[in-house]
Nucleic acid binder design. Structure first.
Lengths: 242, 242
DNA sequence: CGTCAGATTGATATTCATCAAGATCGGTGG
DNA sequence: CCACCGATCTTGATGAATATCAATCTGACG
């Protein structure tokens, strides 16, 4: 099977079992693969796309720009995430999708995805599910920005990213790569760059996490989760009939 | 047609045209209607439901509770919103849904909704769409909490609620009812009660909005939208093929 | 060696939370 | 009718959290 579809297949089958016919339908999808350099826009706000993209490698983020040029990142997406599935239904993008690092994405035409929804209801529900999990992650993010302290917010983010990356084989042994500058982190946390820097320093000072360049090491996940009030329910990591 | 289904039908047909067969399928759904007093939980976090609810009257909100008892509201839902459609796929709720005011909701069994997805792909896409619009609203909320000032955030919220309510006929003539206490507003904005009170005072001082008890009057929508950096794209108010 | 992006730190101003105290208003019982 | 009560709104005072400004430091790289 072509690599992007293999990835999608694995990603969907993590939440529920796919049968042979569904796998066939998935693997018959066409797509166009594209590479993006760090900082590039995969999709720009207010555009109308006729295809949706899946992250194959690298980190991407959804970004909302304010009139004054300030930026808020509203979601981080890792390889295997069907970032832009929202565009299939929304038609006009309300935000842009940016490459936080060099990355590769696969663009699947909307007409093929629509055809899929006509033929494979269960597969459709799994795609739908992936957008509702995105929404659950966004809710948690609202709670983090609104009510958690910067330190616990950052701890929460680390817990979430570790688990999400572990599931797709990008993390393990309590360590993972996080290719984000502190400016990027600031735009995720909704803080200033300087305060973000101090928050990272405070997190290191807890001794629960080491973080140097792009290497994050979690020394005690349970205590970090406790500090951050992290409860993985919202990630829906269990496989069950959907 | 039974009232809840009538409402759902109207709500979905706002974003795309429904054909006769689809309307028939919708109107054959069964549901159980329930009333909730202000402050009650329609759905509690961590529960597993076998039905999803649609708001028929009153205001509801999604709420995330932190360990220390503090609360963040992550979405407000008005009559016509299929609040809890997320539960159809998520299985375990990551948040609770609360009645912000006395309200009535219709609970539609999951097995009937699943059957609908098996028979009516286009209808399924419209239900899916409604969850992705929720997600778009949540993204805007992340940007508001993270990067807007309390005053512009509140102004943005007023613009959004006015338009959403206008579409379902609950607002008009630049006025609407908003039955929320300032404590509730604080939990939406992610601010303290006192600061929220001062923000409401500042908003009144702009002269763009009058707000007394539950009556909100917008005196100059365009200038309010400009103040708040409000752009309605994310609400997807246009009807087009999906 | 110079340059540049990113990280770090100190100093200061602004924003926001918290604490404490009224004020307002609708409802309720005498 | 009036006194009282609880919920909500409002305000002032204070301290903590956060933004902003301005350097400096570090490491990668041509």
């Amino acid at each position: 099977m072509k690599p992007a579809l293999e990835l999608l297949c694995k990603s969907l089958s993590r939440r529920d079992r796919l049968d042979k016919r569904e796998i066939d339908i998935l693997s018959s999808l066409n797509y166009k693969q594209m590479a993006f350099a760090k900082g590039a826009e995969l999709i720009s706000a207010h555009s109308r796309a006729n295809s949706s993209c899946l992250v194959m490698s690298g980190l991407t983020a959804r970004a909302l720009m304010l009139e004054d040029g300030r930026r808020q990142l509203t979601a981080l997406h890792i390889p295997g995430d069907f970032v832009d599935l929202h565009a299939l239904l929304l038609k006009v993008m309300d935000h842009s999708v940016m490459a936080m690092d060099d990355c590769v994405a696969a663009f699947i035409p909307h007409n093929e995805l629509i055809a899929l929804t006509e033929q494979a209801p269960h597969l459709t529900r799994l795609l739908w599910l992936s957008t509702t999990i995105d929404a659950a992650i966004q809710r948690e993010m609202i709670a983090s920005i609104g009510r958690r302290t910067p330190l616990t917010h950052l701890g929460h983010l680390i817990c979430e990213l570790y688990l999400r990356m572990e599931v797709v084989g990008l993390a393990g042994g309590w360590r993972f790569q996080l290719a984000l500058t502190q400016t990027d982190i600031a735009d995720i946390l909704g803080l200033s760059l300087v305060h973000t820097n101090r928050t990272v320093r405070d997190l290191r000072a807890t001794g629960l996490v080491s973080w140097k360049n792009s290497d994050v090491v979690i020394h005690d996940f349970d205590r970090l989760a406790e500090l951050a009030g992290f409860d993985a329910t919202y990630l829906n990591l269990l496989s069950e009939p959907r």
